[in-house]
Design a binder for these strands. Sequence first.
DNA 1: TTGTATGCGTTATCAC
DNA 2: GTGATAACGCATACAA
Lengths: 323, 323
Amino acid sequence: MATIKEIAARAGVSIGTVDRVLHDRGHVAPEKREEILRLVKELNYRPNASAQGLIIARKKLRFAFFSLDPEAHPFFRELNAGAKKEAERLRQYGVEVEFYEDFEDRVLEDPDSLKVDGVAMVPLPQFDGIRDWAIRNALPVVAVSTRMDGCTAFVGCDYRQAGRIAAGLTAMVAGGKGDVVIVSEGTEEITSFYERVDGFRAELADRYPRMKADQTCFFIDHTVKLDLPKKRPAAFYLVNPGDYSICRTLQEHYQNPVPIITNDRPEECRRLMEEGIIAATVCQQPEQQGSLALTSLVDLATGRREAAGDHYTELSIHIRQNI
Amino acid sequence: MATIKEIAARAGVSIGTVDRVLHDRGHVAPEKREEILRLVKELNYRPNASAQGLIIARKKLRFAFFSLDPEAHPFFRELNAGAKKEAERLRQYGVEVEFYEDFEDRVLEDPDSLKVDGVAMVPLPQFDGIRDWAIRNALPVVAVSTRMDGCTAFVGCDYRQAGRIAAGLTAMVAGGKGDVVIVSEGTEEITSFYERVDGFRAELADRYPRMKADQTCFFIDHTVKLDLPKKRPAAFYLVNPGDYSICRTLQEHYQNPVPIITNDRPEECRRLMEEGIIAATVCQQPEQQGSLALTSLVDLATGRREAAGDHYTELSIHIRQNI
DNA sequence: TTGTATGCGTTATCAC
DNA sequence: GTGATAACGCATACAA
């Protein structure tokens, strides 16, 4: 591998001059500049990543990760786990990460006490203060799982596509025809809900003309029973449930069990797949989202502007054979 | 982050002494040793990865990757691409990788001309000479995609599990009952073939008593037609095809198209999924295999013995909505 | 048994 | 406009 030293030697200059050319800092004679750039190309020079890492380490970068306790929703267990694993890896490069998973934390009222070079957060109203503070201080802000105004980068999945994939799976289990009932917890239509449903219906309309999903049942504490249609549907699409045990209720409602397609796969979901109650699930890789949020922050804080923008995690399909 | 220097300062010794303790090289007074270990724990010391990378870079590691031209099988296109991408990344850490994709290469007859610190290879008889040479010279050998005697590590998927997943998908499209016909190219029963079929049948036997897959049809140039049963099967399981266009032949053979489940997803397979001819495929992440083979080699060559053994890539499911 | 010096490749500062 | 040099954290050879 070519080094800066080698290029300097060949060009008959010092490493300082090479460095100035590489970083476009001027103060270099045009002909020397040309010669150096020629050598860079010829030797296919790439800066040594370890050496650069050592330089970055002396910046002593610190970041804050705002999320929620897994009790709020199983999604956060995996998200936080992924972020913490990545934080441990980044620690080996001299980067530190603080985690806030609690609305009670006093940092929320006193953002100035945060001594960090950037923040990642799940967009929740409680964190708006932190976000605004970060934007005012020109610090990078990464939104995780849902988009947010004013953020530097977004890490999450394409919920519409997730809905489309769920539709494809539903068609598989239903033989490409019949009525699908959409089931969801609570009543509020959050982004992850309506984008998935939107994609789901769009895919049915585009590719499965013999299927439809007109009815939506919301439940709280399994009271979904009341709303279920008399006629056995071809499948259920269970959108972002916090509590998967609703599946048992759905399972027992008709003579023949109705196949269930759902999203994500926390522990409870895995068990139900194992039992054959959930036919398939579409996952958004929450652990990867946690990890990616932090690596994006590092990239942004070290001036890699290409880290700004959207980062989509892959959507994976799981059935009982690849839980 | 704590550094060796900080630990040395706190323990009242020099960094040389701390280093000797960390690497268990002896020649340290017991009480100093204890104190240093205590501090390491207390400060949760982790060596800086960039600094270590800089040390590794001066070893000027070189590896050789033996594979085949994509013409031999589409699998190699993705495998090689993944390996080359990783090689480019490793180059930033001062590691160089040579690629051999040709049986004609004269290195195969003269392994001693290889100046490398380890090799990765797809286990093919043509590479046996290289493998034996590497073993004689105590160099790490990584087998990719198929296991091999004498290798230090294996990178690939669990073909039996792949077969089981394919069975699960087949059951989904077939409604959990009916006869499945297994279709495969050529006549030779290579590992990837029989392990997948083995897993496929085992899964049907374990979980889908109303299904079976007794018949296997081998084809060369679409002559499979001759062997297909009169009665329309519930599904086809197309095992490791080099040429996916056989799907069109299968597709047209019966009045109603029979759903096809297959493995892997090179370009040709993606197109057929797009058209709705292939219902689903189980993929072994060939790109990740290429990448992982090289990172494992680096780990082995730098003394991380835990890199020895088996590395399984994830098995992913793809349908037309997540091609 | 212990400490010191050197170098890895890059960045950045400073003197000329 | 240019070059010399220190520093990042670690490993190691060598001196004491």
